[in-house]
């Protein structure tokens, strides 16, 4: 980026517009335009950055020794694992349901389209935290869960209180919330594939499910992946909201520890660095998965 965009003007003669003639001008030297203000901006930014780093190292408030002590502590590692599990289950279940919803919205049946639309509307409208608390308190609404003929006799039943423990309530809430967003991402990806692709596949007599799996979805993945990666990363950090349900995930565990020892800042840094580290791993994974689906693409 350039801060100065004026053309270089020769002070003595004004803008030089004469076209050089062939004789005697073969070795004209090109002088690039100078950007003195750019150097000023670079210097100013460098000073601010240096101050920040200096503060990180010298300010005793960060308590890096406490950070080091807790960063790999057993309770924290266990909490990181819980966070990863919540992300994994939320992603897998959320996208599985999301794909179903996406194809319901693309279906020829007006009823299926309406149901999927209503689902997406509802779950995008309810704040995640409100929804999580609903699931957590499911036992208030339904005392037991029974499998059997709809409106008829049941075969076996569960006590809701035991079935929907805190962890499964959290996974359920995250997945149902994620499904609404995943559905729109998948639908967008499918719509981005040129109509001619499924038409060509249909003209070749390729069976319907194979058209989807082999022709449409791999191409849809190219536009699904960047958005899906955004969603997974945001779900990964979003699991911290589950701390309201007293589930021992990373953010909750950190709160428990600093509640006990009062070292708020270093423990927040423990959580922060873990979140940054694992998000970076996800970003690297995203790069490789995207490269796989870019086969045959010009860019």
């Amino acid at each position: 980026m350039s801060l100065t965009s004026d053309p270089p003007i020769d002070k003595a003669t004004g803008p030089h517009t004469t076209v050089p003639t062939a004789t005697g001008h073969d070795a004209l030297t090109v002088v690039p335009v100078r950007h003195p203000w750019r150097w000023v901006a670079v210097a100013a930014t460098a000073v601010v950055l240096a101050q920040f780093l200096h503060g990180l190292i010298t300010n005793p408030g960060w308590e890096w020794d406490v950070f080091a002590q807790f960063f790999t502590a057993g309770t924290i590692l266990k909490a990181v694992w819980v966070t990863l599990q919540l992300t994994l289950y939320g992603t897998v279940l959320g996208f599985a349901l999301g794909i179903v919803l996406a194809f319901m919205r693309l279906s020829g049946s007006r009823f299926l389209r309406a149901v999927a639309y209503a689902y997406i509307w509802a779950f995008r409208s309810i704040p995640l935290i409100v929804q999580l608390l609903f699931w957590f308190n499911l036992a208030y609404l339904y005392k037991e869960l029974r499998f059997g003929i709809p409106f008829g006799p049941g075969f076996f039943s569960f006590d809701t209180m035991n079935l929907v423990g805190a962890m499964s309530a959290a996974v359920l809430g995250l997945a149902l919330h994620q499904a609404a967003y995943a559905a729109e991402i998948v639908r967008g990806g499918v719509l981005a594939v040129d109509d001619g692709q499924s038409e060509a596949a249909a003209a070749l007599g390729i069976p319907r499910h194979r058209q989807l799996r082999r022709i449409v979805l791999p191409q849809a993945m190219r536009s699904i992946l960047p958005n899906a990666a955004n969603e997974i990363i945001s779900l990964f950090k979003g699991t911290s909201i589950v701390s309201v349900m007293a589930i021992g995930e990373l953010f909750y565990q950190v709160q428990v520890v600093y509640g006990r020892n009062g070292r708020v800042v270093p423990l927040l840094m423990v959580a922060t660095v873990w979140y940054i580290l694992l998000t970076s791993v996800l970003s690297v994974l995203q790069h490789y998965v995207e490269r796989h689906y870019a086969k045959g693409a010009a860019r």
């Binding site: 040129d194 001619g196 692709q197 038409e199 060509a200 596949a201 249909a202 003209a203 070749l204 007599g205 022709i215 791999p218 191409q219 689906y293 086969k295 045959g296 693409a297």
Partner: peptide, 18 residues
């Protein structure tokens, strides 16, 4: 199944790019 006996060539080729 009927279409497998009829070849169709499109104006825009519609090859599968991947």
């Amino acid at each position: 199944r009927q279409r497998t006996r009829i070849g169709f060539v499109f104006q825009n080729f519609n090859l599968f790019p991947h």
